[in-house]
Design a protein around this nucleic acid. Structure first.
Lengths: 319, 319
DNA sequence: CTGAAAGCGCTTACAG
DNA sequence: CTGAAAGCGCTTACAG
């Protein structure tokens, strides 16, 4: 079967410990034997058995990233950047999907405590408490949440300056003439909560009427009648749906990451893109610190969002 | 640190082999001791060390899927279906990206021989020979190529009935009145080759003029002047680009998987969607056979494409 | 039903 | 510079 140290040792007539050393370029091994062993190993196509190596070292050089699916940029982009940058540090990033299924999520988390990875990035999808997560945290397993956290005290989350970004979007809509707001930030995660907070703070300070809505059914309330309406949302979905039910007057909208769908029903479309590369860089840095220095820095690390983009503006906004 | 069999054995006052048996529900262990041990284990939060278990069993219950990126449906959809269905078989699917980089690809492949996974799905991106791949194949490592193969004799590839699908697209364009064709199937992989073959066979049989083009620069040749032009392509990119350079006459286009971009310049848009779910099912089946029965069935397994879709048709096609 | 022992493939103090 | 030995955490014949 697979070539082992033992095979090489037998052929070269040395002890397997010498082979082990030679193959790890240990200077203590005589250059000549080292050469001979290395050559023999490559001829036989020797490849170390990581399971065995890990058993000794306790390291796998694998990092997992546990994600709900691959549909959104907020998942794919950080994953892509992380994969590239961690490769340079000698780690393989392995993505695994839990398909928005809570049991599946728990299963993936429990695999982490079985020595399959040296750490993991997580994009969570539940606010319920998951005991597998708290167990990992308690054992100081390196865990970094991306985009949104799980509201667990001892955890680290790398995300965007969501509160500020939402306030900026709100401000922009006001400049475009918005007189009232519908806020769609009901995803029930820390990112949506922060966005909601940012919008509400500003609107309350300015005394602007607003409602917080679950979905496009808000379009059936009286609230939307008369006056220029603005909508804020994490994705283009809810605004798109609501606009279909809306009358003739044009809507103002502010969304995160990307607009998608038709644009006719809107007078202004503002997009706040997150700095996914920056998020990945921060996440990688924190992860390596956790692995190497056993650092325990927790809490939220906020990466500034990119400058607001105006996708559509039928008339100039007032300053 | 982590709880081990030894800890539990000490507490329960039995040998670690008994603990091991109890935890694997071995009926040979007396029910009472079994219960006691299992309870103690769960209280301590025991989790088996997979690295150690693998060292003995040689199994990891992990399957890798090595992919270039996550941008295209042809990558994401099979991955998503595979992840779900393999979970039911007790395997975790781990996606890892090589970012279209040949060294990175080789690195991922060499990791496979280090006991990190029981098998791997691969969406290749190079036609150059990769010795890491042939080495794995030689050792009967379970490897299943998805969508396109690497032209290696001993390998298994699950893909679409590309030749037939391309012929159907061609036929459809002819029905829409196409008088000449530009074929964009230059990706240099087995899928593109099969598609090119399917289109060419039909066009030659019918004596229809065509050219094979690398990219949208075909738009600068004399060939495109006069007569209704059709384009066939794996993705919407090249046709989209060419249409910009094209004059007033409308184009006919047939693409695989999905259309994207504007539609104005086209009179007819036909889309051939691949059956990604079917591909995933076949791939999973072959993988499990390779792992369990040590089967060596090789070659191409072709899953029929879905019925052709007509995304746009400015005038009815003749039959 | 249970324990003692060997072994999976590797690494690393410890002697020499 | 090299070998013998212990050990990483587990599994599994083999005795009893």
């Amino acid at each position: 079967m697979a070539v082992t140290l033992k095979n090489i040792a037998a052929i070269c007539g040395v002890d397997i410990s010498t082979v082990s050393r030679a193959l790890r370029d240990d200077p203590k091994v005589q250059p000549l034997t080292r050469k001979k062993i290395q050559q023999q190993a490559s001829e036989l196509g020797y490849v170390p058995n990581l399971a065995a190596r890990n058993l000794v070292s306790g390291k796998t050089l694998n990092l997992w990233m546990i994600i709900p699916d691959m549909e959104l940029p907020v998942v794919r982009e950080p994953a892509c950047f992380l994969s590239k940058s961690l490769k340079r540090q000698g780690y393989d990033l392995l993505l695994t999907l839990y398909h928005h299924d809570s049991d599946n999520f728990k299963h993936k988390m429990s695999r982490l405590s079985q020595n399959v990875a040296d750490g993991a990035f997580v994009i969570p999808g539940f606010d319920e408490e998951v005991k597998e997560v708290t167990a990992l945290l308690r054992n100081n397993f390196p865990l970094v949440f991306i985009d949104r956290g799980m509201n667990i005290p001892q955890s680290t989350t790398v995300t965007t300056t969501n509160t500020r970004a939402a306030a900026e979007l709100t401000e922009k809509c006001l400049e475009a003439g918005a007189e009232k707001f519908i806020l769609f930030f009901q995803e029930n995660n820390t990112a949506a909560e922060a966005r909601l907070r940012g919008a509400i703070e500003l609107l309350e300070a300015r005394n602007i009427p607003f409602i917080v809505a679950d979905n496009a059914d808000a379009g059936t309330t009286d609230f939307i009648k008369d006056g220029r309406l603005a909508m804020l949302s994490s994705s283009a979905y809810a605004p798109g749906e609501l606009s279909k039910k809306y009358g003739n007057a044009k809507l103002i909208v502010g969304v995160f990451d990307a607009w998608s769908g038709l644009t006719e029903k809107f007078s202004h479309i503002f997009v706040c893109k997150q700095d996914f590369k920056g998020i990945a860089e921060q996440a990688a840095k924190v992860m390596l610190r956790k692995i190497n220095d056993k650092s325990h820095d927790n809490g939220f690390i906020e990466v500034p969002s990119l400058p607001l983009e105006t996708l559509k503006s039928e008339y100039p906004v007032r300053k």
